[in-house]
Amino acid sequence: MKNEPEKKQKIGSALVVGGGIGGMQASLDLAEAGIKVYLVDSKPSIGGVMSQLDKTFPTNDCAMCTIAPRLVSIGRHKDISVLTLSEVEKIEGEPGNFIATVRCRARFVDEDRCTGCGTCVANCPVRFIPQPLDGYADVQLSPETKTLVDNIIAEHRFRQGPLMPILQSINVAFNYFPEDVMKYVSRQLEIPLTSILRVASFYNAFSLKPRGKHIINVCMGTTCYVRGGERLMDRFGELLNVKPEETTPDMLFTLKSVRCIGCCGLAPAVMIGEAVYGKLAVKDIQGIIKKYRGNGHAPHDH
């Protein structure tokens, strides 16, 4: 986006779009070369993604050490004008003679006087309230579900860090996270749904999809792996006709792998619900599935 004047003298100015590390370096190089630079970024500040990293691949350089001097130089440079919260609307003209139209959005802060103290951020009353989106402004849960979820929330909400215990209890009650319940929890706890989903999707024990009554956890710890856990997994998959992480159509079984249940003395082992089956051979599996299929309950002894 650099407008090269008619190759005779350095006149006019350059427009750099995007204030990431590349844009910053380009602006500095141009300005050092004596060209007036307009640096445009749609974000409230320049710095781009790199400001969120702490090291960079593959040299392991500290990200902040790379961008900080450039941020300072740009702020100080008399020939660089930074236009944040701005977007390029159109560019007309030809090489050497462009006219760019930039829309600068209002930021309701007088930049000349702001010291960046952050008090306004801390005190803004609307900051943590999730923005209700269309469709779940009011989540309707069935009365039983609502009571259940309300009880769970009431039990934990005044603990420090209530989210995990609540999610764990919901996981026990429903075996997965129904979408409506998640939305409801988000409203009740005043935690944005995205934050909840980020936590919910992180752990192996949670699922956003409905799961079977019996969760078959095939141990894939080292010992079980060395002693043939993978073959057990294959056999379960074959007999139940599902792949790992899938549920049978009758909603009876979900097949999963788990990272070590600590029963290495019994390898290879499988945990179904809370029952552990140890020293299993491929040929035992049919019988185990049958037991659970038979009455739909966990067999008492094995």
Partner: peptide, 29 residues
């Protein structure tokens, strides 16, 4: 007692702290 929910990285101390706090359990610098 606080229970984990099956994420290996939670054994890392900063990640464990985030997990108890109810945040996304990623480690920090």
């Amino acid at each position: 007692i606080r229970e984990g929910s099956g994420a290996f990285v939670c054994g890392e101390e900063t990640s464990l702290i985030h997990s108890i706090e109810g945040k996304s359990p990623e480690p920090r610098q």
